[in-house]
């Protein structure tokens, strides 16, 4: 283990380390802590300039109730869910099939096809913006949830395919070949051998894609415009414009927007990190 385990260090260093750890953590999360505190403040507190002390009066429940009452926060949240869930399911499904095709069949152009999925996933969004916007309008999807669902599904398929292909490539070939000799159809091989084996990867990937899509801001500016369709990221920014002076509400809104990915991260931490670091531990 590197660095050398602290248990082997002198006691004084151990104590120093254990004191430093929470201090470093608080310093690192200071901006976030401040926002959490602000979300529990009263407007009087803010007017008096008490931004960083303890709230004089705790308004936690009031502020969070207020934001749902006076702003379309609930609609924004629901929109984000409506956009994110189908995207995750469909892009992961498409990519599992594509990943299987690229990993376990010796088809022509397979490296080229794989490179296209990988490369496409790193390009700047702006190179897609104008044509995707035009296409969305032509298909009649503009300013509907479909605009974002279809685009995100297509775009995330690139990353998902990279991920699934690497995962499936590491599975043993023997199972597939044995099944083929038995006369099992290719679809059944996929459905009954591959899918059960990739389940951990599906979980990791789903968590990751959920976070990516949930947190998207750019496309929610470009492909939708009304409050009825806006996801939470664009909604939050719209609120910032309307509620400029009400920082306690903006803060509460920020915390709410951050909650689903954070909760998911905590619940599925192992999967999440496995997803992010895929390829980082093997060259």
């Amino acid at each position: 283990m590197f660095p050398r385990p602290i248990e082997k260090a002198p006691r004084s260093r151990q104590i120093a380390y254990k004191t430093l750890l929470p201090i470093a953590l608080i310093a690192w999360l200071l901006p976030l802590v401040a926002v959490m505190m602000t979300s529990a403040r009263s407007i009087d507190d803010l007017n008096k300039g008490n931004y960083w002390g303890l709230p004089e009066k705790w308004m936690l429940i009031e502020n969070y109730a207020e934001i749902f009452r006076v702003t379309p926060m609930a609609t924004y949240m629901l929109n984000s869910v409506i956009i994110t869930l189908p995207t995750v399911i469909v892009s992961v499904a498409f990519a599992t099939m594509a990943g299987f095709a690229l990993a376990k069949y010796n088809i022509r152009f397979r490296i080229l096809l794989f490179a296209i999925f990988v490369g496409g996933n790193f390009i700047p969004f702006q190179i897609l913006m104008i044509p995707v916007r035009t296409l969305t309008i032509d298909l009649g999807f503009y300013d509907t949830p479909w605009a974002l669902i279809v685009f995100h599904t297509a775009f995330q398929t690139g990353f998902c395919t990279l991920f699934m292909r690497n995962f499936i490539a590491a599975l043993p070939n023997e199972l597939i070949e044995a099944a083929r000799v038995e006369g099992v159809s290719e679809w059944k091989i996929f459905r009954h051998i591959i899918v059960p084996l990739v389940r951990p990867a599906l979980a990791a990937l789903s968590v990751l894609i959920f976070t990516f899509v949930w947190n998207d801001y750019f496309w929610s500016l470009v492909l939708v415009q009304s409050d009825e369709v806006r996801p939470i990221t664009a909604g939050l920014n719209a609120l910032k414009g309307q509620w400029l002076a009400s920082w306690q509400l903006i803060s509460a809104g920020s915390i709410i927007a951050a909650l689903p990915p954070v909760a998911l991260f905590f619940l599925m931490q192992r999967h999440f990190i496995a997803g992010l670091t895929l390829g980082a531990t093997k060259g």
């Binding site: 099939m97 594509a98 095709a101 096809l113 897609l128 297509a154």
Partner: peptide, 14 residues
């Protein structure tokens, strides 16, 4: 297996 992923990717990205 490749077709759905490739078609959406081609339409919306490539």
């Amino acid at each position: 297996f490749l077709a759905p992923a490739f078609l959406v990717f081609a339409l919306y990205v490539l």
